[in-house]
Amino acid sequence: MTLVDAIWADVVALWRPALLNIYFAFASIPLGFVLAIFVALGKASRNRPLSRLASGYIYAFRGSPFFIQLFMFYSLMLALNLSVWKPLGIDTIVLNPLVLGPAILALNTTAYSAEIFHGALMAVPRGELEAARAFGMTRAQIFRRITWPNMLRLAWPAYTNEVVFLFHATALVYFTLPVIDGNADLMNKAGELFERDYNALLHYSVTAMFFLAISLCIFLIFGTFYRHLMRHTEGPKRIKFTTARL
């Protein structure tokens, strides 16, 4: 078997597990996005208890490792199984890794995204808000026409990075949650292939290539949307990747 054949065999073996990582990311991103907007608005709110609560949530989830969060929520769900989920008859849904995984990922990305959106919210030009108020816009109108578009534009590059980091975090899900129905993800499958012939370099390189390719796709898609968001402006509209998950 030549090297090309070996690589191709790995690509064939790994494409379906890669779909699982993509599923985890795409199931959690929309939920995390919506929740993050609310948490960011909560942190920026003048209501002190609400603001404290949102800040606390963000601090707790950004300050602790995702790996521990996974373990914590999974074991919490297991502990509640006999007393809550079983009697309700929803134990197979709640404990299903395809439901629980995205749920925990969403909780995690909500905190990171909320911090990004909160930063953007604070950077919305004051003059535009004052002008909108002078025009007699209602608060809902101001949010829809001034705050929201500005916030999205300001936050988008950082949010793109967050989505890539979230995608990378999906690699950790199955180190905690059980694999059911053979729904292995990339890291599972790579480990399985490794145990078959102990060729770490080949299998992990191909796995890395999958992550790299999908990360690049995310950049491409989000970059295209960023150009759309910034279509009225001049100058470069490229997203720069920051290497810290902020």
């Binding site: 950790l172 890291m187 992990y204 796995t207 890395a208 992550f211 990360s215």
Partner: peptide
């Protein structure tokens, strides 16, 4: 930028 840290973390010791 494109590869998760856990992959390197497992790969290098192996």
């Amino acid at each position: 930028r494109g590869v998760p840290d856990v992959l390197f973390f497992l790969f290098f010791p192996l």
